[in-house]
């Protein structure tokens, strides 16, 4: 039999996952709107962002309420602080999906510069990172969370590759600059999504193992 508090914690997890699924959908729709030149879909992503913001606030309020009223300790405390931090990352990913959609709206007004190949690949990896980080949260699986961290480099490399390719376009033909710069933005946006997914995965490691693994590469950091 579960206590009121245990049910509240389950509900909190559920709300974080709901936010996670909204955000995952926003990423894939924003990329789809770009690749398929579907401006209606891009507008849709922008319209739905207030739902993401509302859930972000709802989760923060619930976490603050639980801290004040339940005085959580140990694993419960780690779950609540993790939820608060993950929510910030998820909300930022939602904002990035809006940014991608805005660039898609602009790019869809002009002739396509080139077929999108690396951008959807990057997006797929980044989205997979978000999905698996949240999956790791649900299952309390820190091995999966640590595996997610290893994928960040792939996205960074693709971002670099896309940038160089677009730079080549711009040098060759200045008329492409406006479009190429916007696509570079999109690439950078996706790279940021992977960074936020990395933050989420690191928080899951903290939740499960009680260890803060952020900034491990920095000398002197614990």
């Amino acid at each position: 039999m579960s206590t009121v508090f245990e049910r509240e914690l389950e509900d909190l997890k559920g709300t974080v996952l709901k936010l996670g699924s909204l955000v995952e959908k926003a990423i894939s729709d924003s990329i789809k709107s770009l690749v398929e030149r579907n401006s209606k879909l891009a507008a849709d992503v922008i319209d739905k962002d207030p739902q993401v913001n509302a859930l972000d606030v709802e989760i923060d309020e619930e976490c603050i309420r639980l801290i004040a009223l339940r005085q959580p300790r140990a694993g419960d405390l780690r779950l609540i602080t993790t939820a608060m931090k993950i929510t910030t990352d998820l909300e930022r990913i939602g904002d990035i999906a809006v940014d991608i959609s805005e660039r898609a709206l602009e790019l869809n007004e002009e002739p396509q510069l080139k077929p999108y190949i690396d951008i959807p690949r990057m997006a797929e990896i980044a989205q997979g990172m978000v999905r698996d980080a949240l999956d790791a949260l649900v299952k309390g699986d820190s091995a999966l969370a640590r595996e997610v961290l290893t994928r960040d480099d792939m996205v960074d490399n693709l971002n670099w590759q896309v940038f160089n390719e677009l730079l080549f376009f711009m040098i060759r033909d200045p008329k492409t600059v406006s479009r190429a710069v916007k696509i570079t933005y999109v690439s950078k946006y996706i790279e940021r999504i992977a960074d936020h997914a990395t933050n989420i995965a690191e928080m899951v490691v903290y939740l499960v193992e009680g260890k803060i693994i952020r900034h491990m590469a920095i000398p002197g950091a614990k």
Binding site: T3, F5, P72, R73, A74, G75, D76, L77, R78, E209, G210, K211
Partner: peptide
Amino acid sequence: RIFTAPSNRLTEEYITG
């Protein structure tokens, strides 16, 4: 440490009620 990340499962269960 005990109140944020205890090592023992029994401690965890007691601490979290």
